[in-house]
Design a protein around this nucleic acid. Structure first.
Lengths: 109, 109
DNA sequence: TCATTACATCGACGATCATCAACGCATCAA
DNA sequence: TTGATGCGTTGATGATCGTCGATGTAATGA
């Protein structure tokens, strides 16, 4: 006899009261969105024709140091919102639209 | 001759690169969502049959002090996500679903 | 009037965060 | 091999945050 575990597909704020674990998971995602620099990083990636931008091309438009940009990209990557791909000397970052959609779904009616 | 100002209805992360002001405004909203306690507050409000919950009824389920709950409700109110209505000794809080929808729209395709 | 209840605010504490300059590592070109 | 470039990481600093306990304030009821 098999035991089927009910995988909770996607905790939603509006569906039912969240427990501490679900809330912590979601809060981690929204926290990544709660910074102006990181939101601008995401919007630049969304608008990039190739869908990719390397670290050095964020520095000028955002007016932050290279170390600071790298720091924010790490936070976004840990939240699953972006992915980096090293090609030669450059690391090209791209937006994970599915992950963004899952956060959107969490506050969807 | 009239001059029509183009009101930017709702800055979106996915539409075009955000400037610093737009990003700051949106980040303020998402920051309010970036805490487990505040997400649970919102989910409790969304699930409340009457649509309202008074401060004292958050304390037990969330396991936080009254001062802490009041602090989080203030942050949510400043972000426009909840509204408080004083009736007698109690203050009843309710969810602003329109404000939540506007944040959702900001990360909508 | 006085005591009680519900909530907001304040002061303090430790923790986390955003930022930069400096450093280290990997890659590439000469 | 050497020097230069792109990027991640570290250490330090000032700011902000989450939390609590205590205090203040408003409303209620005796």
């Amino acid at each position: 006899m098999e035991v089927f575990e009910v995988a909770e597909c996607c905790p939603s704020v509006l569906a039912a009261p969240l427990d501490a674990d679900e809330a912590g998971e979601l809060a981690h995602g929204f926290n990544a969105l709660g910074d102006p620099v990181r939101l601008r990083v995401l919007s630049m990636l969304a608008a990039a024709p190739s869908g990719e931008i390397c670290v050095c091309d964020f520095i000028g438009p955002l007016g932050k140091s290279q170390g600071t940009i790298s720091h924010h990209l790490k936070i976004l990557a840990e939240a699953g919102l972006v992915h980096g791909d090293r090609r030669g000397k450059w690391v090209w970052y791209s937006l994970d639209r599915d992950r963004l959609a899952s956060l959107r779904a969490a506050i969807d009616a």
